[in-house]
């Protein structure tokens, strides 16, 4: 279907984009890669009066070393994240998750920032960003502010980015040399995650020194499985011990019930996938 008519602007500076956004108010929408927004507009579930395309603003795209972190422009496509050597070294979990997003064509257009601000509970990038302790750099009329990962995801399709603000960059603290695995469960190709588990692990000898474990689609926002992380600290690199540590993966979650499975099924899946993800991240 053809979307309803809209005004279109492709500003070349962030300031211009912010001004347009402020003028457009509720009727304005930001267009990043468009791989979620355009399908929704075509179904006429969204009908913005004004579309502000960030695609022509320099400096919003790219992956850079930033000291103790890697700085990623919000308009960086998933494909670039998946294939980045810099991220492979310092935040392998992001690469692993980006490789599972939709399909290759969508990964060429869809952006990291777009996926984070869209905040689909079944989207693959929020949980890895959460567990890696991402810092979100947000621009608005009042200047730049930084929001921590724990405060960024507020609810279903809702983040800390205000109506008149734009996410410009994300800083990912380096987890150099940590093993990683994004274990995504789907029934058919290019499906959204029924449940997925993001795990990254620092091993020392034959034990896990530290682990970060995040859950996708186990609630309205990505969830950090803190009890699993605590149980994994010092855990032997051995399947039975890891499975015991991951048994509490569904604790405190509120997964949806839909045609792909009910909440109990998802709680069970979370423990199974967490075990697989941690084992794989630890090199097992």
């Amino acid at each position: 279907m053809i979307p309803s008519a809209f005004d279109y602007h492709a500003p070349t500076s962030l300031d211009e984009a912010l001004t347009l956004l402020a003028q457009g108010g509720d009727d304005a929408k930001i267009l990043a890669g468009g791989q979620s927004l355009i399908p929704v507009m075509r179904l006429r579930l969204a009908g913005p009066e004004l579309l502000i395309d960030l695609g022509r603003i320099d400096g919003l795209r790219g992956i850079e070393d930033d000291g103790d972190a890697v700085r990623i422009g919000a308009m960086t496509p998933h494909h670039d994240i998946a294939s980045s050597a810099l991220l492979g070294e310092h935040a392998a979990l992001l690469c692993a998750a980006a490789r599972t997003v939709a399909d290759p064509q969508v990964r060429h257009r869809g952006t990291f920032g777009g996926a984070l601000v869209h905040a689909d509970p079944a989207g693959d990038m929020p949980a890895p960003a959460l567990v890696l302790g991402a810092e979100f750099v947000i621009a608005g009329a009042g200047g730049i502010r930084t929001v921590s990962a724990t405060d960024f995801f507020e609810g279903l399709f809702t983040t800390a980015v205000g109506e008149d603000e734009i996410l410009t960059h994300v800083r990912i603290p380096k987890h150099t040399g940590w093993g990683a695995r994004y274990e995504k469960f789907t029934r058919v190709a290019q499906q959204w995650s029924i449940v997925a588990v993001a795990a990254t692990v620092r091993a020392e000898g034959s034990a896990i020194a530290e682990a970060r474990v995040g859950l996708t689609n186990m609630g309205s926002v990505p969830i950090r499985a803190e009890s699993v992380e605590a149980a994994l600290a010092g855990c032997a690199l051995e399947e039975a011990a890891i499975a015991r540590a991951c048994a509490s993966a569904a604790e405190g979650t509120d997964p949806p019930t839909d045609t792909n499975g009910d909440a109990d099924y998802r709680r069970h899946l979370a423990t199974v996938l967490a075990t697989r993800a941690v084992l794989s991240a630890a090199g097992g």
């Binding site: 279109y8 492709a10 468009g34 791989q35 355009i38 399908p39 075509r42 064509q105 060429h108 257009r109």
Partner: peptide, 29 residues
Amino acid sequence: CDTTNCGACTVHLDGQSVKSCTMFAVQAD
């Protein structure tokens, strides 16, 4: 499919594959 699933509309944009049903022509300017 008209819904970003089937890939029948795949073209290359600056040498990379994209689904041309999920892009506006203005974005190819």
